[in-house]
Amino acid sequence: MQDGESGGPRRRAEIFSATLDMLGSVGFDSLTIEGVAQRSGVNKTTIYRWWSSKSELLRDALLHSHILRFELADTGSLRGDLTALAEQVQSLLDDEHRRTIVEAALVGAVRHQAMRDLVVSFLDDRFGRHRPVFERAVARGDLPADADPAPLVDAMAGALWMRVLVRRGEVAGTYTRDLVGILMDGVTRAAERSGAPGR
């Protein structure tokens, strides 16, 4: 996409919002650039000039839209950072609009390789953004230097997704604290085995 286009940033935001809205309402199968153009009020020739396929458009929408974005806190401890991260994921899934988008993306990922690739790309991007949490934890001694944080993130996100998206259960503060507590028990045992203090 050409950043020099008049109104580019604002138009991008409108297009990304329309793309994710359409994904949530009609799913990956029925999402079309023509439909996005209609929803966003942007001419479809403009969209095609910036993105050659709906997969390219959807990838950028997932990665760059503010709808699925949240900021990470630096609480001074891994337990606090994980709790804050869990609360951010919970907040995202508690919002009906954003939850519908996440559900549509996951359903599409099960059925279509293209959508699966997009979801994996999105998750990899988010994991990269979360990495400072674990770098700080290693520096503080909360995590062993050779620890792989990926299973930790997968376990936390997976538990929240299962609770909200599958079981349709509420995520009370006690659930989040219990979940983080279970994860921290594992982190502490790993740290003790490696000689790091862990907490």
Score class of each variant (00 low, 15 high):
Met184Gly: 00
Gly169Met: 05
Ser17Cys: 13
Asp146Asn: 11
Phe28Val: 07
Ala172Ile: 13
Arg177Glu: 11
Leu31Arg: 03
Leu93Trp: 01
Asp117His: 10
Glu87Ser: 07
Gly4Gln: 11
Asp117Val: 07
Trp50Cys: 15
Asp178His: 12
Ile67Arg: 07
Gln2Ser: 10
Ala86Thr: 01
Gly158Val: 07
Arg126Leu: 04
Arg193Glu: 04
Asp94Pro: 04
Ser194Trp: 08
Thr176Tyr: 00
Phe70Asn: 02
Gln2His: 13
Gly198His: 05
Ala37Ile: 01
Gly158Arg: 09
Lys44His: 12
Gly186Cys: 07
Arg59Trp: 03
Ser121Arg: 12
Thr83Val: 10
Asp124Pro: 08
Arg189Ile: 14
Val42Phe: 02
Val89Ile: 14
Gly76His: 13
Arg189Thr: 11
Thr188Asp: 06
Pro149Val: 03
Leu82Ser: 00
Leu179Cys: 06
Ala191Trp: 02
Pro9Asp: 14
Gly141Phe: 13
His130Phe: 14
Asp142Met: 03
Ser30Pro: 01
His64Met: 14
Val138Phe: 08
Val120Glu: 15
Arg11Ile: 11
Ser91Ile: 14
Lys54Leu: 03
Leu152Asp: 01
Ala147Gly: 09
Ala191Met: 03
Gly141Val: 15
Pro151Lys: 14
Glu192Thr: 05
Leu62Lys: 03
Leu118Asn: 02
Tyr48Ala: 15
Asp185Gln: 11
Ala159Glu: 06
Gln88Leu: 12
Lys44Cys: 12
Leu23Ser: 01
Gly158Glu: 15
Leu106Trp: 05
Leu72Gly: 03
Glu14Pro: 12
Leu92Phe: 07
Asp29Tyr: 11
Asp148Gln: 14
Arg49Ser: 08
Arg111Glu: 08
Pro151Arg: 14
Val26His: 06
Gly169His: 05
Ala147Lys: 06
Gly195Asn: 10
Asp94Glu: 13
Glu135Asp: 14
Arg111Asn: 10
Met1Ile: 12
Ala145Gly: 13
Gly169Lys: 05
Val120Ile: 11
Ser55Cys: 10
Pro197Cys: 10
Glu87Trp: 02
Ser53Val: 11
Ala114His: 05
Ala157Leu: 11
Gly108Arg: 01
Asp124Val: 11
Ser53Asp: 14
Glu87Ala: 08
Leu63Tyr: 08
Leu31Gly: 02
Phe16Pro: 00
Glu103Thr: 14
Pro149Met: 04
Met162Ala: 15
Asp125Leu: 13
Tyr175Val: 08
Gly27Arg: 02
Leu152Lys: 03
Gly186Asp: 13
Trp161Asn: 07
Ala150His: 14
Ser91Lys: 11
His130Cys: 10
Thr176Ser: 03
Ala139Met: 12
Leu82Asp: 01
Val120Lys: 07
Ala105Pro: 05
Gln38Lys: 15
His97Pro: 04
Asp74Glu: 13
Ala191Glu: 00
Pro151Ile: 12
Gly186Lys: 12
His97Leu: 15
Phe134His: 00
Asp117Asn: 08
Arg10Cys: 15
Leu143Pro: 00
Gly76Lys: 06
Asp148Leu: 10
Arg49His: 03
Ala18Val: 04
Arg136His: 06
Leu118Ile: 05
Arg193Asn: 05
Thr188Lys: 09
Thr176Pro: 01
Gln90Phe: 07
Asp74Gln: 07
Val107Gly: 02
Leu92Asn: 01
Arg79Thr: 03
Lys54Trp: 02
Arg167Gly: 09
Thr75Asn: 05
Ala137Ser: 06
Gly128Asn: 04
Val171Arg: 03
Ala61Cys: 13
Phe127His: 10
Ala137Gln: 02
Gly128Asp: 05
Arg79Ser: 04
